[in-house]
């Protein structure tokens, strides 16, 4: 019963997210504005990598930056969660019978869908220009890897959004710094092994690290079990972050009730 109610809250919050997304973008502004911008970013970093680095890493850099686009968009959950505080809806959400985590989990899911679509277009449309070709049988697997990576990153972003809900002025800084850190340390621009071991251990907890390995293996025609293992590890990272985020949202509400930090005014 409680689970059904929680799922219903997530579903309606997601509908709210879709409506919000439709109010933000038209199909033209998404296609020629957002998608165009992200494809340009993929091309820029891939070409920059080709000029500065080893040609052997060329394909990995293209795959990395293409997958990164879904993470960039998933991390927008950090900023969009803070909108609730600015809109004055946070106290209403806290005082409703719905759980805060379920509400916020559904409330920004538009970024996961849009991000997955962006990465998918980047991988398939730009791939041939950078020597990456996808067999028809691999295409559904590409979607699965992207969805798992995007959703896992979204869960990580949800955790960060709890911190930002307490300091909304930091919403864009936290969002940008976190995805730039992922670009730097999680294998997008340079292999994870390039960095000192402690950084590598932290990177292993971030879903994109495993999502990228899975996508690179898929692009190189690697074995299915190898791809599957990395997808599973990315999913486990996502589950870890979703649990951390759920606990953090509960603490946020409890702390807010104790210290009065949940504003309640017109």
């Amino acid at each position: 019963m409680a689970l059904r109610y929680s799922l219903r809250v997530v579903r309606y919050s997601a509908q709210n997210a879709v409506a919000d997304f439709a109010a933000t973008y038209t199909w033209k502004s998404w296609l020629f504005g957002w998608l165009g911008r992200m494809l340009s970013q993929v091309v820029f970093f891939t070409l920059a990598g080709r000029l500065l680095g080893s040609p052997s890493l060329h394909r990995e850099r293209f795959v990395g930056n293409s997958v990164m686009t879904c993470v960039v968009e998933a991390m927008m959950v950090v900023a969009s969660s803070a909108w609730e505080r600015r809109a004055g809806t946070l106290p209403l959400l806290v005082s409703s019978p719905a759980g805060l985590f379920e509400v916020f989990f559904g409330r920004s899911l538009q970024w996961v869908v849009s991000g997955t679509a962006t990465s998918f277009v980047a991988l398939l449309a730009l791939g041939p220009f950078f020597g990456v070709h996808w067999a028809p049988a691999a295409v559904p697997v590409v979607v699965v890897v992207l969805l798992v990576t995007s959703l896992g990153s979204y869960c990580f972003g949800l955790f960060l959004s709890v911190l930002v809900l307490q300091a909304t002025q930091l919403r864009n800084i936290v969002s940008n710094v976190s995805y730039l850190a992922m670009m730097t340390f999680c294998g997008v621009q340079v292999p994870v092994g390039y960095w000192p071991a402690p950084i590598g251990w932290v990177a292993e907890c971030i879903p994109i690290t495993h999502g990228l390995r899975a996508m690179n293996a898929l692009a190189a025609g690697g074995r299915a079990d190898m791809v599957g293992q990395q997808v599973l590890e990315a999913a486990l990272c996502g589950v870890f972050w979703v649990l951390v985020a759920a606990a953090a949202f509960r603490l946020l509400a409890e702390r807010g009730r104790r210290d009065g930090s949940i504003e309640y005014s017109a």
């Binding site: 919050s13 709210n16 919000d20 933000t24 004055g88 809806t89 209403l92 719905a98 509400v103 017109a266």
Partner: peptide
Amino acid sequence: GIVFGGERGLYTRLTARQNLHYWCALYG
């Protein structure tokens, strides 16, 4: 149920119907 005065507390980019659908669902 809580009612504020003023501009805050509503999803302004959504329609009135969408706002109410959402809050009704949150109340089970």
